[in-house]
Computed example of a mutant assay.
Amino acid sequence: MVDAESVPEPVVESAVLAAINTIVDPCSAAVSLPVGLVDLGLVQDVRIDHGSVAVEIVTTAPRCLYVGHFREMVEDRVRGVAGVAEVTVHVAQSDVWDESMMLPAAREAMSARVSARRRALTLHPTPPPPR
Rank of each mutant, 00 (worst) to 15 (best):
S14M: 01
M101R: 13
S100C: 12
S32E: 14
A82M: 03
S32V: 07
G36P: 03
L37S: 01
Q93G: 07
A105K: 13
E99I: 15
M110F: 10
A54P: 00
S94G: 11
R79D: 04
M1T: 13
E13H: 00
A112Y: 07
V53H: 04
I23N: 05
G41T: 09
D39K: 06
G36Q: 06
T88R: 09
Q44T: 09
M1S: 15
S94V: 07
P128Y: 11
V16G: 01
D3N: 10
R117K: 12
V91L: 05
V74W: 03
P8T: 05
A18Y: 00
L42V: 08
C27N: 08
A18G: 04
A61Q: 11
I48Q: 04
A18R: 05
D39N: 13
P62N: 05
M73E: 13
R79T: 07
M110K: 12
V84E: 00
A120P: 06
T60V: 15
R47H: 11
T122C: 02
A85H: 07
V35Q: 04
S94Y: 09
R118Q: 14
E56A: 09
R47I: 05
V31R: 07
H50C: 00
G36V: 05
G68R: 14
D76N: 12
G36M: 08
V87D: 04
L103R: 14
G68F: 07
S28G: 08
D76Q: 15
V78S: 04
R107T: 03
V84T: 03
L121P: 04
P34C: 09
T122L: 12
V58L: 10
R63M: 13
M102K: 13
S32N: 12
D39A: 14
Q93M: 10
R77S: 05
V38G: 03
A29S: 15
V89H: 05
V16S: 00
S111F: 12
H69L: 15
A18C: 04
G41C: 14
Y66Q: 10
D45L: 06
